[in-house]
Amino acid sequence: MSDQTPPPADPAGHPPAPPRPPQPAPGAQTPPPSGPPAGGAQSGHAPKPSTSFGQGFFGALFDITFRTFITRRLATVFYVVGLVVIAIAFLGYLIAGLVAGFGAMRFDVATGILLLLGTLVLVPVLSFLAVIVLRFWIEAVVALIAVAENTGRTAENTESV
């Protein structure tokens, strides 16, 4: 057994700080770091800038080589347009269901009440599910484009073997 005891904690109850690594003497040369350079590149060259954000929107839109993607830039627009379409459909189905329910009450009260309740329950639930599906598809496409962009950057930054 050793006779070493841990240093006491300070009065505030904090544990002692870990020991610092030894510092080189002033004027001494430090060896170069081993391993690949910072940034993940295997060569000493700086990584090339990505072309996916360097072009303007119309330059990327008319890029016939498809080296730049516009999907990430348009994802917000697609989502907002999809939400507007879902909201319009929600209002249309809600109004149509309410009109049908009140119209059916003239002939059969029970059928009219069932139509009204069905409309008030199903239309919001189905609209909510439509928003979830819209978000899912847009996120899936954006994630796929992000994978493609990152793969392209990785290929640019690695040298051929």
Rank of each mutant, 00 (worst) to 15 (best):
P11K: 13
P31D: 03
W137L: 15
G112Y: 12
P8N: 11
A89D: 12
H14A: 15
E139Y: 05
V81G: 00
V141H: 06
A104D: 04
V99L: 15
A155E: 02
I138F: 00
V109P: 05
M105N: 07
S2P: 05
A130F: 05
V85W: 02
S43F: 00
A17F: 09
W137S: 09
V161S: 15
A89W: 15
L120I: 03
G112F: 11
V131T: 14
G40E: 06
D3Q: 08
G112P: 11
R72P: 11
E156K: 13
A110W: 10
P47T: 14
A9Y: 13
V141G: 01
H14F: 14
N157Y: 02
L144D: 05
S43E: 08
S2K: 08
T30P: 01
T151N: 07
L94D: 10
R135L: 09
L74T: 07
F69W: 08
I70F: 06
L83G: 12
S52P: 00
F62R: 01
G59K: 10
V125M: 12
I64W: 08
P21E: 08
V121N: 01
R67I: 06
M105F: 14
P8G: 05
D3F: 10
F136W: 14
F53I: 14
L120V: 04
L116A: 05
L117N: 09
L94K: 08
A143M: 03
T30W: 01
Y93P: 00
F78I: 02
Y79P: 00
P18I: 04
P11R: 12
F69T: 07
L83Q: 11
P33Y: 01
L61R: 03
R153E: 07
T51G: 11
L98K: 04
T111S: 13
V147D: 10
G27F: 01
N157F: 06
P37F: 03
S50Y: 01
L115R: 11
A155C: 00
V142P: 03
L144P: 00
Q29W: 01
F136M: 13
T51S: 05
Q4T: 14
P15R: 10
T154Q: 14
S160T: 11
R20E: 15
G101S: 02
